[in-house]
Nucleic acid binder design. Structure first.
Length: 221
DNA sequence: GCGACAG
DNA sequence: ATCTTGTCGC
C-alpha cells in the first residue's frame, strides 16, 4: 500500500512531544470506517542485533474467517530508544516499511500498544492511524495509564479504563480466566466498535489472530 | 521529590 | 522487546 510521510523520525524527545500534541488534534474517536470490513491487519515488532535492528511484521487476514491473505516483513536500523509514552517513534518507521511492501490495503489495523490511552492521548495506534488516515485499534498487553474496576472472569466482559476522569479505553477479557487486554481507540473508531472487532479477531487465545500471525512469521526464521 | 512506566 | 527449562492445567 502507499504511504505518505508527514514528519521525520530522528527527533529529540521535546520534538516528539510537540508532534504528539499537534497530531492528537486530528484523532477521531467516532466510527469512520467501511460499513463492511473485509481485511484486518496486525503488526508485530521485534529487535535484533542488540536492539540496533528493528523488525516489523504485518499480517493481513480476511475479516470473515480470519484466513491469512498476505504478510510482509521489514528491517530497519533502530533510531529511537524505548521510552514509555514514546513507543511510536521507535516502532512506526519499520511498521511503515512493512505496510508499504503490502500489495493489499487493509481496512483496519490492530496495533500492539495503546491508542488514546496515553498521557497525551496519542499512543502508537493513534499515531499510525493519523499518519495513514485509516482506522486503527490499540490492543495492549499491559497498562500505560489509567485504572479500572475489577472485571469478571468470563470472556467478553470489560470495564472502562479511566484516566484523568475520562474513559480512554477498556480492560477487556478476551479469554475466560486469563489476564485482560487493554483496548483503546486508535483513530476513526469508537471504543464500542473497537471492542467488538477485537473480540471477533480473538476466537481462541488472549491476543487477536492478527498479531499472533504476525508474531509467528517473524519468529519462524 | 517520589513512583509509574505500552514494547 | 529479549534472555530461557521445566512445569502446571485445561
Amino acid at each position: 500500500m502507499k504511504i505518505n510521510q508527514r514528519h521525520e523520525w530522528s527527533l529529540s524527545q521535546d520534538d516528539a512531544i510537540a508532534i504528539q500534541e499537534q497530531l492528537n488534534k486530528e484523532v477521531i474517536t467516532e466510527d469512520k470506517l467501511k460499513d463492511k470490513i473485509e481485511f484486518v491487519a496486525g503488526v508485530d515488532m521485534g529487535f535484533e542485533e542488540d536492539n540496533t535492528v528493528s523488525r516489523a511484521a504485518v499480517a493481513v487476514l480476511r475479516y470473515s474467517d480470519l484466513e491469512v491473505l498476505e504478510t510482509s516483513i521489514a528491517y530497519r536500523p533502530t533510531t529511537f530508544p524505548y521510552i514509555p509514552g514514546f513507543l511510536s517513534f521507535r516502532e512506526i518507521p519499520a511498521v511503515l516499511d512493512a505496510l508499504e511492501k503490502l500489495e493489499m490495503t487493509p481496512d483496519i489495523i490492530l496495533c500492539d500498544g495503546q491508542g488514546i490511552a496515553h498521557p497525551r492521548r496519542f499512543g502508537i495506534a493513534s499515531h499510525l492511524g493519523v499518519l495513514l488516515d485509516m482506522p486503527t485499534i490499540g490492543v495492549a498487553k499491559s497498562l500505560l495509564v489509567g485504572k479500572h474496576e475489577p472485571l469478571s472472569e468470563e470472556k467478553g466482559n470489560w470495564q472502562p479504563l479511566i484516566y484523568q476522569g475520562e474513559t480512554v479505553g477498556a480492560a477487556l477479557r478476551t479469554r475466560t480466566g486469563v489476564k485482560p487486554v487493554y483496548i483503546s481507540s486508535g483513530h476513526r473508531i469508537s471504543l464500542e466498535t473497537a471492542i467488538a472487532i477485537v473480540l471477533h479477531c480473538t476466537p481462541k487465545y488472549r491476543l487477536p489472530e492478527t498479531t499472533r500471525v504476525a508474531d509467528k512469521l517473524a519468529s519462524d526464521r
